[in-house]
Design a protein around this nucleic acid. Sequence first.
DNA 1: CATGAATGAGTCTTCATTCAT
DNA 2: AATGAATGAAGACTCATTCAT
Lengths: 204, 204, 204, 204
Amino acid sequence: MRRQQLIDATISAIAEKGISGTTMAEVTGRAGLSLGIVSLHFENKDNLLKSTLKHLAQELRDKWGLVQDNPDLGPAEKLWGILEANFHPDICTFDKVRVWFAFFGEAQYRAFYREMVDEFDTERAVAIETLLKELADADGRSDFDAFGTTQTIESLADGLWLGMMLYPEWMPLDDAKARLWALLSDHFPTRFAPGALPKMASAQ
Amino acid sequence: MRRQQLIDATISAIAEKGISGTTMAEVTGRAGLSLGIVSLHFENKDNLLKSTLKHLAQELRDKWGLVQDNPDLGPAEKLWGILEANFHPDICTFDKVRVWFAFFGEAQYRAFYREMVDEFDTERAVAIETLLKELADADGRSDFDAFGTTQTIESLADGLWLGMMLYPEWMPLDDAKARLWALLSDHFPTRFAPGALPKMASAQ
Amino acid sequence: MRRQQLIDATISAIAEKGISGTTMAEVTGRAGLSLGIVSLHFENKDNLLKSTLKHLAQELRDKWGLVQDNPDLGPAEKLWGILEANFHPDICTFDKVRVWFAFFGEAQYRAFYREMVDEFDTERAVAIETLLKELADADGRSDFDAFGTTQTIESLADGLWLGMMLYPEWMPLDDAKARLWALLSDHFPTRFAPGALPKMASAQ
Amino acid sequence: MRRQQLIDATISAIAEKGISGTTMAEVTGRAGLSLGIVSLHFENKDNLLKSTLKHLAQELRDKWGLVQDNPDLGPAEKLWGILEANFHPDICTFDKVRVWFAFFGEAQYRAFYREMVDEFDTERAVAIETLLKELADADGRSDFDAFGTTQTIESLADGLWLGMMLYPEWMPLDDAKARLWALLSDHFPTRFAPGALPKMASAQ
DNA sequence: CATGAATGAGTCTTCATTCAT
DNA sequence: AATGAATGAAGACTCATTCAT
């Protein structure tokens, strides 16, 4: 499919050259296609970029959605699975993380990002908060701050991505996952045993 | 000083229009100056942008540096002071946070960011890790993972910034600070009493 | 071919407005094409100007090269043919002469001129000197200063061009050719009969 | 005098950077003066350049005018003196020759050149032609082409300048003077003895 | 479907000129 | 008389978009 070919080329171009360096010639050159082809499949550049972001968002949504919809998983497994989706090898590519932050950083796409992704993000925050409550209730901890912990978890996950992008040596993928697991361990030591981070639970 | 005037206008322009929308006309128009003035004081656009980032980095560095050098503060106060610098009203402006992420996101400036800021970031990570060790030692906790906790703290701080930028309603400034304080409370409840977040400790 | 169209427009523009007055808009306007076309075919302005000079140099080289390679011509005919090439209606246009001097006069192109044209000029000087020696030997004039006469002939030819450009009324084309012929007559009266300047020998 | 200081700087700038590279900052920088000083002494750039050319023309005119007005010189000495003025060390500097050709080559100044220098050039051509006639009459050569020889002499002198500028190794100053002397020898062997070129006749 | 030559609006940059000091 | 910061018009260059083939 030409569309996917162009989206892949766009991801690669943005990762390497940034949004401002991502010209149509750059994208079509990377795709090995002609200049005019973009207008054929995406109308214009703006739409190509938005479609690229939409593709990344959908890809991530599908990844954790699969975990959430899995009836065989308990709440702790689901929670970890949703979080781990962010670090899945399909999702957490160097190139793709760079593209996410490129869109976060560019004002004109931040607005679009919100329209596009707000719904997904809200869903995810709700899913996480619900699972946290479930776990806290099961442990009889009525004072547990599920909302605040959701904020912490989501922010930590985002911050780990940024760290992986900016300082890959200081923050390798395994460290990032270990930090997130450790946070869960601190809150639910019985559910997320310290140091017992499962290997690629979501990789099947 | 014209330089500062132009840097302020650049921050405002990037925040509102993004790096690609930050034209020389946009910047000089916001500063109420003429087009040619930039080349007079910054040689060219690239240098203006780099000087803007350098200014932000130095401003932050100065802010937490002041805390670190204060001999009247104990380790817990210092640790919180350093972290709180990120949320100081001089630093954590909506505009300025947007500019930070604009630079993170744009490939050509990410490289420059590292050259420029790497040293500051490393210093800060070392300072945090050292203070954490000091606190853990004082409490006799020899098994404390100071490095991992530093990673978590720094990543959470970054992620909170991102959350404040992308979803200001969901993540207001006070929530962000509360999340960071809560993380410290989890690790050192005697030093950072749960719910006892001090008001603007670093603002004096 | 667009390239030739643009080179022609460049010659016309430089002749009329000088190198500094030869803007991209001026050139493309004369060619009846759009502004962007130059970067498509010549990358940038500098390369367009250099290509224009290269074209002129090659055109001249081809013109006298044809004479030199003609096996039917004797040495005197060849010598005159080579010199007359400078005054051929294809070469010695008002516009083109102006362009030559424009490049001579502009410091940044003089260096390029030498790289580009040095070889041709050296070849031509050698060809002239060789033919002079041949003629002198045939006449048994062992004391003939072929090198010095070459210097004189070439310098005179250049100076005649300058005269034609600066004072066209004082130095019409026919006078210029007559001066050159007279110089040869002075040295080889039997080969170049005084007053017997052939009409457009190279024009067929 | 500031004016002379600026004219000298302009000559040096044009020689090295060409007319288009001769900015006001370049000129005033070379003169060690401030940017605004040009408008004080020359009104504007155009006038500075024209004054520079005027200065060069006057300098040359004064040089051969001195020879012409010298009652102690015979016609042959005068003729040579006038021609040699072109190669006087005050006149025939590398820089100054480059500036002459810069003005010849730039269309917008060629027109001014003619207004400014036409008179001098005509005077000189008349002076040369008159002296040639005088010499020919004295020798009883009624068929001598004084006008044509003037054309040849003047053109050769110009061409020798061009040769000295473009190929200084191939055409050193002494060769240039020798070529001009040899031309005169060819026409008046008794007045300009072959090989007897006088040393710096005009240098006293 | 696909190509890529051509267009021209938009941007950075240079630089002559002005003018308050 | 002299300075040099400031201006803004002018020019080179880029690049999204169009369209004939």
